[in-house]
Deep mutational scan, measured.
Amino acid sequence: ERVRARYDYEAQNEDELSFKKGDIITVLEKDDGWWKGRNGKEGLFPSNYVEELE
């Protein structure tokens, strides 16, 4: 599954994923509120910062 970033997100910890608004992220795992994904790097990000691609 792929999602698009709705906002910029700056990683707060080294296991998190940074991205810019409009970036496409491949979702690897979904957990409550935090998803694991890849966009060149791999890490956790808040699920409310992304939207599913149509």
Rank of each mutant, 00 (worst) to 15 (best):
V3T: 04
V3C: 10
A5R: 01
D15Y: 15
F19A: 00
W35V: 07
G37V: 01
L53N: 06
I24L: 10
R6Q: 09
F45N: 02
G40W: 12
E52W: 11
L53Y: 14
D15S: 12
D15C: 13
E14L: 09
R2S: 09
K20R: 13
E10S: 10
L17I: 12
S47T: 07
D32L: 08
L53D: 07
Y7V: 11
E29D: 13
E54Y: 11
R4N: 05
W34I: 07
N48L: 08
L44D: 04
K21A: 14
E10W: 09
R4S: 05
K21V: 12
L53W: 11
N48F: 12
D23R: 00
R38T: 14
S47R: 10
R38H: 14
I25R: 01
K41P: 08
N13Y: 08
R4L: 09
E54G: 13
E16L: 00
E1I: 15
E51P: 03
E16T: 00
L28Q: 05
T26D: 09
E51H: 06
R6P: 04
D15T: 12
W35R: 02
A5W: 00
V27Y: 01
W34H: 07
G40P: 04
W34D: 05
Q12T: 13
E54H: 14
Y49R: 08
D23Y: 01
I25K: 02
R2H: 12
E51W: 03
R2F: 11
G37C: 03
V3Q: 03
Y7C: 15
S18G: 06
K41R: 14
W35F: 10
E51A: 04
D31K: 15
I24N: 03
G33W: 13
L28S: 05
K41Y: 10
N39M: 15
V3D: 03
G33C: 14
L44G: 07
K41D: 09
V3K: 05
G43S: 01
D23I: 02
R6T: 09
R2G: 06
L53M: 13
R38Y: 15
Y9C: 06
K30S: 05
N13F: 08
Y7Q: 13
D32F: 06
W34A: 04
R2Q: 14
F45C: 02
A11N: 02
E14Q: 11
N13H: 12
I24D: 01
S18N: 07
V50E: 04
R2L: 13
L28V: 10
R38L: 12
Y9H: 06
E1L: 15
N39V: 11
R6G: 06
D31I: 15
E42W: 02
E29I: 10
Q12V: 10
R6D: 05
K36R: 15
K41L: 10
I25M: 05
S47P: 14
S18A: 05
I24Q: 04
G43F: 00
N39Y: 13
F19Q: 03
N48D: 14
G43H: 01
D15V: 08
A11I: 02
N13I: 04
E10H: 09
E51G: 05
N39I: 15
T26P: 04
Y49I: 08
V3R: 06
K21E: 10
E1C: 13
D8N: 07
N13V: 06
L44I: 15
E16H: 08
G43W: 00
R4P: 01
E54W: 11
F19P: 02
I25L: 10
E51Q: 07
W34Y: 11
G22C: 08
F19G: 01
L44K: 13
G37N: 02
A5L: 01
E10R: 05
K20H: 11
N48W: 15
L17W: 00
E1P: 13
E51T: 07
Y49E: 01
G22W: 00
D31G: 15
W34P: 00
F45D: 02
A5P: 05
I24C: 09
W34G: 05
D31F: 15
Y7N: 09
R2I: 13
G33I: 13
R38C: 14
Q12P: 04
L53Q: 07
Y7W: 14
A5Y: 00
K41Q: 11
G22I: 05
K20F: 08
F45W: 03
E16I: 00
W35G: 06
T26F: 09
F45Y: 00
R4G: 03
V50I: 10
K30L: 04
N13A: 10
Y7G: 08
F19T: 01
A11Q: 05
N13M: 07
D31E: 14
E29M: 12
G37P: 04
D32N: 15
Y49G: 05
N39A: 14
E14F: 09
R2D: 06
A11C: 05
G37M: 00
E42T: 15
Y9M: 02
L44N: 09
A5M: 03
R38I: 13
K30A: 06
Q12H: 09
G43M: 02
E14D: 14
E42Y: 05
E1N: 15
E16D: 04
K41M: 10
F45Q: 03
N13K: 12
K36F: 14
Y49L: 14
F19W: 00
L28P: 02
V3E: 01
N13W: 07
E54M: 12
I24M: 09
R38E: 12
D32Y: 06
D31S: 15
G22Y: 03
E29A: 14
P46H: 06
V27W: 00
N13E: 08
Q12Y: 05
R38F: 15
Y7I: 11
W35P: 05
G43C: 03
Q12C: 10
K30Q: 07
S47L: 07
L44Q: 08
V50H: 03
E51V: 07
A11S: 07
D8M: 00
G33V: 13
Y9W: 07
L17E: 01
R2W: 06
L44S: 11
G22S: 05
W34M: 11
G22P: 01
N48I: 12
R6Y: 05
E52A: 15
E10L: 10
Y7T: 10
G37L: 00
W34T: 03
K20W: 06
R4T: 08
N13S: 14
G22E: 03
L53V: 11
F45P: 02
R4A: 06
E42F: 07
E54F: 13
A5I: 01
N13R: 12
W35T: 07
R6W: 05
D8S: 07
Q12R: 13
K30N: 04
L28F: 08
E29L: 11
D23N: 05
T26Y: 09
E42K: 06
D32P: 07
E54I: 14
E51N: 02
E52C: 11
D8C: 07
D31C: 15
V27N: 01
E52M: 13
D32S: 09
F45M: 03
L28W: 03
N48Q: 14
R6N: 08
K36W: 11
V27S: 01
E1G: 13
N39G: 10
I24G: 02
P46N: 09
E14C: 09
E10N: 11
E1D: 14
W35I: 09
D23A: 07
W34F: 10
R4Y: 00
V27C: 04
Y49P: 03
K30I: 06
L28M: 13
Y49N: 06
N39E: 06
Y7D: 10
E16N: 04
K30G: 03
W35N: 06
Y49S: 08
L17Y: 00
D23G: 03
S18C: 06
K41S: 12
K20P: 01
G37R: 00
L53T: 08
L53R: 03
Y7A: 14
P46W: 05
F45S: 01
S47M: 12
N13C: 13
P46E: 04
G40Q: 10
Y49Q: 07
F19V: 03
E54D: 13
G22T: 02
